[in-house]
Each structure stands twice: as C-alpha cells, then as structure tokens.
Design a protein around this nucleic acid. Structure first.
Lengths: 168, 168
DNA sequence: TTAAACTTTCAGTATATACTGAAAGTTTAA
DNA sequence: TTAAACTTTCAGTATATACTGAAAGTTTAA
C-alpha cells in the first residue's frame, strides 16, 4: 500500500468511526486529515483534498475549534488562515472526553438527580422498578464521571500504568 | 413531579442521549421504557406508549435483542410475545461495551494494524507524521481494548473498587 | 385444512441531517 | 476610500436515516 492510499484509508476509516459515534463524518475526516498533516493547512487545501464546499469546510473547521481539537494559525505576511491539529493522541482523547462529558453526561446527571427525588410507595412495582433503575444508572454515571475527571487530569503513562497495574 | 411524568422524562432523556451516541432514538426509548417496566411488555403496549408503528416497534425490538439488551418471553397459554429488559445497569453497560467493541473498535484496530505496515523514509515529514499518528492511535486503541476486555470479565464492585483505589 | 392471532417485511414516505455555492461580510494593504 | 483577498452566513437542496402501514408470512388451535 502506498502512503497516499494509506492516508485515504485512514481518513475514510476515521470518518466512519466518527459517524458511528455521533460525530459528523466530514468533521472526523477533516480532523483525520489534519492529524496526519505535518504542516497546517488552508481552507482551500482541505476543500480540495476532501472534495467539500467552502461553506462545509468553514463550518466544520469552526466546529473542530470549538471541540478544542484544532487551532488557527497565522503565518507572517499571509492573509490566509491555517489550521493545525494537535497530534498528541492522549490530548485528543482527553479533549473529546472532556467535551462529551460537559455536553452529554452532565445534563443526564442533572436529570437523574431530579428523577431520584420522585416519591412513591415501594409496594407499587411500577414505582419500585423506576426508582431502582434510576438509582443504579445514577450510580454508574457518577462513577464514570469521577473516572473521567481523573483521566482529564492525568498523564497518559501514569493513567494506563495505574489501570494495568490493577487489571494485570 | 408525578411518576408518570418522571417516566416520560426518563424515556425522553435516554432517547436523546442515545441519539447523541449514534444509537437510534426510538431504540433507546424502547429500551428505556422496558428498563423501568417491572413486567415484560407486548409489541402492542410499546407501540401505544411510544406512539410508534408496528413496523418500527418490530424492527427496534429485534435490534435490541441483537444488542443483547432485551429478551423475548413467552407466557403460558398466550400467543403474544413479551419483551423484557435486563435491569442490571452493570450488565447493560458491559453489553453495550462488548457490542461496540466488536462492531467498531475491532475493525478500526484491524485497519490500524495494516496502516502501521506502510513503509517510507523518516526524512519525509509526510511519512513521519503519518507513521507517528497511526502508531499513537494504535497504542491508545489497544489500551482501551485491553481495559474493555477486563471490564467485560469484571464484577461491578470489584471494577470500580479497583479504579477508585488507585485514583483515590 | 382453515382461520384467527399473531409477527415480519418492505416500498413508499417523512424527517432529520449535512452540504452547496453564491452573496454578504470582514480585513488588510496601498 | 477602494478593491483585492479572504471568511462567514444561510436559503435552498441533496442525502441519509427513520418510520409507516398494509400486505405477506407464520404459528397455533380446533
């Protein structure tokens, strides 16, 4: 396999994985492209490489910036904006975890907290089952939340070292 | 908040969370409904409660079964099929992790493995960056894979106990 | 066997999501 | 100021995804 072909395959796979995880395919592809690009790229170059429109490229790049996955760069004496992706995989994973926690896990935790307060009689099976399920999900979600919190603060080698020390 | 209202809210939230994670909203809602239902339900009851068509209900239920999240039950002397959801949250989490690992993580690992083999010169920045990114992602993905493997075999209390012992 | 009671399929349609491309907006240099 | 070189917006459209509902299929009981 040629490098050019391998790049294509990587971009394609990353896009597919993204779409399976609720991330816009194009966004994942642009991210993939920038991750394997040694230099920052312009909107123009991204549009051309991935065959997408200017509008799409612009929106997607802004989105990636809001996810903290890429950054704008300015080159001296140039008008164009360049886009550069952090290539440290651990940072990427942490960044994604951080954003998803904020955008998705936190709101759910808030709702679970409210739902925990519902009153009723445990002799009512409807109530008992609801109560138990909500409590269990809440416990799990809280544990995940705490683990993510630790992960966000952790160094990669320490994190995996700790995990594997226990899990062996 | 009344129990009825709380149930609605839970089903709605679960559906939203699902759709954010690449799971069909209706599928997540049906699962939510069954999770808070003390008794197994018929297709008919599910259709009515969630206002969905027979076709949709049927497909969704089959999907949930293929994810290992619900099961068919037969009641003596009845023609109808009943659907029942495992209510153990840890089992649910494990089951979802297991399926997503099989469906999504494994294929990616396979592709990364291929892409790792690409040959080239490290003096070529295009090659060097590609190589490094692929290797890093591969390492991370492998670690995640191993951790999931442990999780799949683990008891809930042991798992979280171990995690928090280290993370404090 | 038949027919009632169910489940499954799938063509057609609706809905949600993503994308285009041109127009409007902004910035910079002269 | 002007105009060239860019970026942003967004109405209109395309595409992907989900859903409906009726017809076909299956199972069971008598």
């Amino acid at each position: 396999m040629e490098l050019v072909e391998a790049k294509k395959k990587f971009i394609e796979s990353w896009g597919k994985l993204g779409s399976e995880w609720g991330i816009n395919r194009t966004m994942a592809q642009v991210h993939a492209l920038l991750m394997i690009s040694p230099e920052a790229l312009t909107t123009e170059e991204i549009m051309e490489t991935l065959s997408i429109s200017r509008g799409n490229a612009n929106m997607t790049l802004r989105d990636l910036i809001s996810w903290g996955l890429i950054e704008k760069q300015h080159k001296a004496g140039e008008r164009k904006e360049y886009f550069y992706a952090d290539k440290n995989t651990w940072n990427i994973a942490r960044q994604v975890a951080k954003e998803r926690r904020k955008r998705e896990l936190s709101p759910v935790l808030k709702i679970l907290d409210e739902l925990k307060k519902i009153e009723g009689s445990n002799t009512d099976p409807e109530y008992a089952t609801f109560k138990k399920t909500i409590n269990d999900i809440n416990k799990l979600a809280t544990n995940v939340d705490k683990t993510l919190d630790t992960m966000l603060k952790a160094e990669e080698s320490w994190f995996w070292g700790s995990i594997f020390k226990i899990f062996k």
